[in-house]
Amino acid sequence: MKDFNLKHTWTIAKYHMLFSLRSGGGIVFLLMTLVSAMVIASIFILPVEAMVGAGGDLGLGNDPAITGNIIKEISGSSIVRGLVNWLIGGEGQGSYLLNEKPALLSCIMLALLMLLPFLVCFGAFNQTTSDIANKGLRFILLRTERVNIYLGRVMGTVLFSLTTVILIMVLLVLYIQFKLGIYEVGSLWIWSVQGGVAYFMLSLPFVALCAWISSSFESPFGSLLLCLLFTGLPAIFLKMLNRYLDADFSHKFWPTGWKFGMLNSDLTMVLLTGTVLFLFTVGFLMLGLRSFQKRDL
């Protein structure tokens, strides 16, 4: 780490972020993430829009207050609350997410958080793989150290993911605010910021994991497959271990086990989740950097 140079790292990050948009993977990631977010959002929003439309047809007018009350009725039901409690694995969290916060946005955010680790793989699988394969990194190595290249690429990928997350949240909130108009503007935006932070924090360890895998392989396709496998398989294995041991902590040994923690009502839990996700990120970064420092470029 003694060769670390922030100026070099930042320059590499900036160019990697811009280059992401020129590369096929970047465009596919952007389009896939945006389309997935819109499809998930439509699953929750279309029925609400149908309710608003039906209200208009019945002569009740398109009053957002009526629709808001219907959503409150649905989200207040014990079945829906129980479902969210089961999903998050915390008693009382269903009530917090559905009654105290904008329920529609909470549901969309929960669904997106489940999908996010896999989407991140599409944007992060090719941080160094292609350049290792075509020996392109040798030219950059004349000007800077390996640590700056590695951390610069990771930082660029994180910035690219962050931009995509911000774009998704802004699109969703603007749509809910202006088209449906069922929530108070302030609470909607504050909750969306917390959701954005949750996405960002959850994406960090997976970007670092993909950076590690990406620096260990010379085939972009192989790297993508392994990124997807290492994102999903440990989570499934640890869930099965939970069943086998009759425990409820095994899944916490992988970042996916903390995916909903940033939306918790308890501030201590939010801080703990943030710390754990950060530690996972640092761990994956150290392992990846160690492998990148030693490998033949």
Partner: peptide, 13 residues
């Protein structure tokens, strides 16, 4: 609606 706005994504991009 939200679905038609999703259809706009590719041409706009």
């Amino acid at each position: 609606n939200i679905m038609s706005s999703a259809l706009f994504l590719f041409p706009v991009l």
